[in-house]
Design a protein around this nucleic acid. Structure first.
Lengths: 117, 117
DNA sequence: GTGTGATGTCAGCAAGCGCTGATGAGTCAG
DNA sequence: CTGACTCATCAGCGCTTGCTGACATCACAC
């Protein structure tokens, strides 16, 4: 049994990490997350910043909210949004593992052809 | 500062960063990238690791190859794939900016109502 | 040369996703 | 109360994406 057969011990919940990446995979949503990482904003701000329609912003905010990436705080007729601090921690950890240059690992080549048949 | 009116000076090419995140947004592709970050592998390995069909693996590898995230090296009847070291650098940088806890920025609330209207 | 195995590519299908317009709830000013 | 404004939700549409099966290509063993 080569290390190939070992079923990925690094990430505990790959689907969750993939979901975090999926949240950042859309340019508009990335723009929203980027803006919210700097300061709290309400929907009207995000509409102004991104230039997108209010409904589109609201849809993306709902996705982010349901995923636990942002929290909403209604205040009067405005609703303030802010980024949850540890929302993308697992994604960052996974990506850090990928992005680090692995010169040794890059040359590893496990046995390929199945030995018996 | 009035970051609301400034149209996002942080990331130069948001669409490209979003594309890098999109590459990691699929669980199967994430599994492939994770495996290739540790060692070079050929398609038969990835089929064995992921349990997916060969055509699905090949499709995902083609996406990763076209995006410049992996490189292929045919050798005999096998094709070795390895991760390009700096493939996700920009995504990592963007995510690092998001993930860092910003206690001060989290309390900033720019003026909301349009001044003149 | 022939057979087997590994790999890439193509067309087709189903599902998910993002945008839009319309609508309704809630809030503030007059 | 009425009007203006902010925001969320819904249904609908189009596009993209991922998976599958079928087929073609290439390399190795005999």
């Amino acid at each position: 049994m080569s290390p190939v057969s070992v079923p990925m011990p690094t990430l505990p919940v790959r689907a969750e990490v993939a979901s975090q990446f999926a949240l950042l995979a859309d340019p508009l949503r990335l723009k929203i997350v980027e803006a919210l990482s700097r300061e709290q904003l309400c929907t009207c701000h995000l509409v102004d910043i991104t230039g997108a329609r209010q409904t589109a912003i609201s849809n993306h905010l709902r996705l982010l909210r349901e995923a636990g990436a942002v929290v909403s705080e209604p205040e009067g007729r405005y609703t303030w949004y802010r980024l949850v601090p540890g929302a993308f921690t697992e994604a960052l950890r996974a990506l850090s593992g990928f992005a680090h240059d692995g010169p040794d690992a890059a040359h590893l080549r496990p046995a390929c052809a199945t030995p018996v048949g």
